[in-house]
């Protein structure tokens, strides 16, 4: 719960969080080291100075630290965890569904743990989707189209193998497909982060919600065009949001584009924890206004309190069937405590 300076209570769903182990002990090779180093550079490059972590905590943080950063010190009511296997780089996976689900069990209704799969695994991918549904009852998945797999350096959402997987997701009610379309992380195939495949997949799978993480940046115009045509395409703000600190005017431009093209119902807050922590992001977002001249160029769009409330939680709650009133009452009756461990 975020309490505004005016005393209003805002329900916060953090649409993008991780519980990872990037420690040297878990690294399989130099790629594993370079991957967490790259994340750490995002952290140090875009965080306010007083929010910087030591490298060792960043590589591997405890469940208690996570719990505190998100729910006690942080304003999250519910956090959606994305699984990022990267099994070529890490011995037991980077962000592993098993590990995250174990801590999720301790804190009922606070965690939503999403799965991940790789359509290039063919039949095995389909089996794994069944397994994740039966074992963890997943409601969503995270897709990395630029992930390596053997000789392949990337795939597209509209590949035939991917369509088989999405058909199964649709059938099993795994309806939220988060897609990493953002700055390059494993970029050998530069087109792997191209956003146009979202257009095909979203048209062909109308029952599924397509949440484009990092709103396609640096291909914001392509993304906005697609998200305007497709009613089931959403923008995840992870990575875009920290610019609110280092480049607030620039952040205003991104928000003006998103509000102008997509409208306020299709934008989702995400901290990308532990790259950034939600507390400062939410505080700054609540205090933020799009500069007048930028807003004027985009039909006068503005981040009103009502719109911020949607972005911070209500939009994600709709996608994940979260009963906000019920959860609010439940969390108020059982305040979180760090002693839960």
């Amino acid at each position: 719960m975020y309490v505004t300076p005016e005393g209003k209570e805002i329900f916060v769903v953090d649409g993008h969080a991780h519980f990872w182990d990037g420690s040297p002990e878990n690294q399989k090779n130099v790629h594993g080291k370079q991957f967490i180093d790259c994340f750490y550079a995002y952290h140090t490059g875009l965080s306010p100075k007083e929010q910087l972590w030591e490298k060792s905590k960043f590589e591997k943080y405890s469940p208690n630290e996570l719990y505190n950063d998100l729910f006690i010190d942080g304003p999250d009511d519910i956090a959606i965890f994305q699984t990022t296997s990267l099994s070529d780089f890490y011995k037991t996976g980077f962000g592993c569904i098993k590990r995250t689900s174990e801590i999720a069990k301790k804190y009922p209704n606070r965690f939503i743990v999403n799965g991940a799969f790789d359509p290039r695994d063919g039949e095995k991918a389909l089996e794994y989707i069944h397994f994740m549904k039966e074992t963890y009852d997943i409601k969503g998945v995270k897709m990395y189209t630029a992930e390596w797999n053997g000789a392949s350096k990337g795939w597209r959402l509209n590949d035939p193998d991917a369509y088989k997987c999405f058909e199964l997701c649709d059938k099993l009610g795994i309806k939220n497909i988060h897609v990493h379309k953002g700055p390059t992380i494993i970029p050998l195939n530069k087109d792997a982060f191209d956003v146009h495949d979202v257009d095909y997949a979203a048209t062909d799978f109308q029952n599924l919600n397509w949440i484009v993480e990092h709103c396609g940046l640096p291909r914001l115009d392509d993304f906005c065009w697609i998200a305007t045509q497709e009613t089931n395409v959403y923008a995840g703000l992870a990575v875009a949001l920290p610019f609110i600190h280092s480049r607030p005017r620039y952040f205003g431009e991104i928000m003006a584009e998103l509000l102008f093209w997509l409208g306020p119902e299709k934008i989702l807050f995400g901290s990308d924890y532990a790259i950034w922590t939600p507390k400062w992001l939410v505080e700054k977002l609540w205090a933020f206004q799009i500069p007048e001249d930028i807003s004027a160029e985009r039909g006068g769009v503005q981040l009103t309190d009502e719109i911020k409330e949607k972005i911070l939680g209500l939009n994600a709650a709709r996608l994940y069937d979260i009963d906000v009133a019920a959860r609010k009452a439940e969390f108020a009756a059982h305040p979180m405590s760090i002693a839960a461990e």
Binding site: Y42, L217, P218, Y250, E253
Partner: peptide, 12 residues
């Protein structure tokens, strides 16, 4: 907007 995103990210 796209170029600035890459630019400030790269600098950071």
């Amino acid at each position: 907007i796209n170029m600035e995103f890459s630019g400030s990210l790269c600098r950071g």
